[in-house]
Amino acid sequence: MISLLLVDDHPVVRDGLRGMYSADPRFEVVGEASNGAEGIAMAVALRPDVIIMDLRMPGSDGVSAIRALAERGIPSRILVLTTYDTDSDVVAAIEAGATGYLLKDSPREELFRATEAAAQGETALAPTVAARLLGRMRRPSGGGLSQREVEVLELIARGSTNREAARRLFISEATVKTHLLHAYTKLGVNDRAAAVATAFSRGYLSHDNNDE
């Protein structure tokens, strides 16, 4: 039986997780916490096999808690369960020491499989999270696009002209052209269409973010 600690600031989420896990003989919920600081204290006391950790909580967030547990040498595996799959959230959690990263809309069996995998020290990632990490790995080192260059390309991908992009970003049209030229150089392309296509293929742009 895999012992679990649930760390989430929403009582209804903890209730749902506790009911779901408790109904399966493979798991035992040994504790609950409403923020990172409580989670750390309970993890130290209970030493659960797996900690189901939310990321964004008031007071002490999940990433800080994951990092603190790693620094204290707590052997519990940590499975992040959150609604956020942005690059910054994913990378911060993995770098802090999370074993897995799932989203809260994951099916029950996927969550169970990921929990069992985490208990064995195996990495478990939601498909969208795995895709984001792969996209980051494919980006050229030392020559990545700046945030502003990405913002310009996102608008271009939506069909904006340089003038429209300038208006949307509150910068001059000349500055937009400069950002585009820098992006061309970094991506190794010579025109707008190729820049957008390459930015998509390397994970800088997401089709979800460019749908309107």
Score class of each variant (00 low, 15 high):
M1E: 12
M1I: 00
L4Q: 11
V12A: 11
D15G: 11
L17A: 12
R18Q: 14
G19C: 02
M20A: 14
S22T: 10
R26E: 14
V30T: 14
V30S: 12
A33M: 02
N35I: 00
G36I: 00
E38S: 05
G39Y: 01
I40E: 13
I40D: 13
I40V: 15
A43Y: 08
P48S: 11
D49T: 02
I51Y: 09
D54S: 04
D54E: 07
R56Y: 12
M57K: 09
P58L: 04
D61W: 03
G62A: 07
V63L: 07
S64I: 01
I66T: 15
R67V: 01
R67F: 10
R67L: 12
R67C: 15
R67P: 09
L69T: 09
E71W: 03
P75G: 06
P75C: 03
I78H: 09
V80P: 03
V80W: 05
D85W: 09
D87N: 09
D87Y: 13
V90W: 11
V91W: 10
V91I: 13
V91K: 10
I94S: 06
E95P: 07
A96K: 03
L102Y: 02
L102N: 02
D105P: 01
S106K: 00
R108V: 14
E110F: 04
E110G: 09
L111D: 09
F112I: 00
R113S: 13
A114R: 02
T115L: 00
E116Q: 06
A117F: 01
A117V: 01
A117K: 04
G121M: 02
E122D: 06
A124C: 05
L125C: 06
L125M: 10
A126G: 06
P127A: 03
P127Y: 08
T128F: 08
A130Y: 01
A130C: 02
L134M: 15
R136C: 02
R136Y: 04
M137F: 10
R138M: 15
S141W: 08
G142H: 03
G143W: 01
L145Q: 05
Q147E: 14
Q147T: 11
V150D: 02
E151Y: 04
V152G: 05
L155I: 04
L155H: 07
A157Q: 05
G159M: 05
G159P: 06
S160F: 15
S160Q: 10
E164W: 05
A165W: 09
L169A: 12
S172K: 00
E173C: 03
E173P: 03
V176G: 04
K177M: 13
T178V: 11
L180Q: 09
L181F: 12
L181H: 02
H182K: 11
H182F: 10
A183F: 13
V189K: 00
A195P: 12
A195Y: 08
A197V: 04
A199P: 08
L205D: 09
S206I: 00
H207E: 15
H207N: 06
D208F: 12
N210Y: 00
D211A: 15
